[in-house]
């Protein structure tokens, strides 16, 4: 007698439960994502909505109490008071400068890692790039503060040349931020360059293109979206930061201004906080157009 090909047995509760999910992808995904989605929607988006509402409230200048009535006063102030316009412009400018600086420094490093270095060197470089991220952000900023100080190492090194380091200005913030966010630019560009098959570079050379032409016509266009992906990090991190500017500079930036307004005028701080959000959303729109999201 032949053995049975199919045997049906009584199923345990666990198996019955598993059976309930089998073949129902929506139910599977739904039950997996329910908790994290709740977290995201209620806590994260919820607090953003509260921020948005608060931005339209005002503060009684005498008592300092919050008046919960709709008003555009905060936004009018942001637009009309020159000092705020100057702060916003200064912050966006610095963020752009940091982004360009990091892109220029990161590209050769990432290129070397992805296309030139051997397997072991590549691994060592990835670790080297990640290493600064293991150290506390505060430690690094305070280190920069010490280096940039009046009697710090930078002034000491520049003194023989008759030069003086950037102290307390935008330049100090630019230097510190460029250092802080560099790994966030290197990693996506590295990944983007790794994705370019070597055969494309060979094909370009084979078709008569000099290495520089190959770079301009093949490598750069194919890796540009990855650079934009990295710039999302460098740009938005610079735009929103307040600790580094506070510690290395006396200049006001968006982050520091929000921080300073929180104690006295929370609605105004909320309105100001919407500025980087709007700028970043606009930036993401541009980045999306440039195909950056395929590289994040």
């Amino acid at each position: 007698m032949a053995t049975d090909a199919v045997v049906v047995k009584k199923r345990s509760a666990g198996r019955r439960l598993a059976g309930l999910f089998y073949g129902r992808p929506r139910l599977q995904i739904g039950s997996l994502l329910a908790a994290p989605m709740a977290w995201l929607v209620i806590l994260y988006m919820g607090s953003l909505v509260v921020l948005l509402i608060t931005a339209f409230w005002t503060v009684n200048p005498l008592s300092g109490s919050v008046i919960k009535e709709f008003s555009l006063v905060n936004f009018e102030e942001l637009v009309n008071v020159p000092v705020y316009r100057e702060i916003i412009w200064r912050t966006v400018r610095t963020a752009a400068l940091v982004t360009v600086t990091d892109a220029l420094i990161a590209f050769p490093i990432a290129f070397y890692m992805a296309k030139v270095a051997g397997r072991k060197t590549k691994a060592a470089l990835v670790v080297a790039v990640l290493m600064p991220l293991w150290a506390s952000y505060l430690v690094k900023v305070i280190a920069w503060r010490a280096m940039l100080a009046e009697h710090g190492v930078i002034n000491w090194a520049l003194a023989p040349l008759g030069l003086h380091g950037p102290e307390g200005g935008v330049t100090a913030v630019w230097l510190t931020m460029s250092y802080l966010w560099l790994p966030y630019m290197i990693l996506p560009v590295f990944a983007g360059l790794e994705r370019i098959p070597d055969s494309l570079i060979s094909a370009s050379e084979d078709l008569g293109a000099h290495p520089l032409t190959t770079f301009r016509r093949v490598i750069l266009p194919l890796s540009f979206p990855a650079v934009v992906a990295g710039s999302i990090f460098t740009f938005s991190l610079t735009l929103g930061d307040y600790i580094a500017p506070k510690l290395v500079s006396n200049e006001q930036f968006i982050g520091t201004s929000i921080f300073d307004s929180i104690t006295n005028n929370q609605p105004f701080a909320a309105a100001f906080a919407l500025v980087p959000i709007v700028v970043v959303i606009a930036y993401l729109g541009v980045a999306r157009k440039l195909g950056a999201f395929e590289h994040v």
């Binding site: 098959p197 055969s199 494309l200 060979s202 094909a203 370009s204 084979d206 078709l207 093949v218």
Partner: peptide, 11 residues
């Protein structure tokens, strides 16, 4: 000129 195994067309 070469025809590559993976064609190597510029995407």
């Amino acid at each position: 000129n070469t025809v590559f195994q993976d064609y190597a067309l510029f995407p």
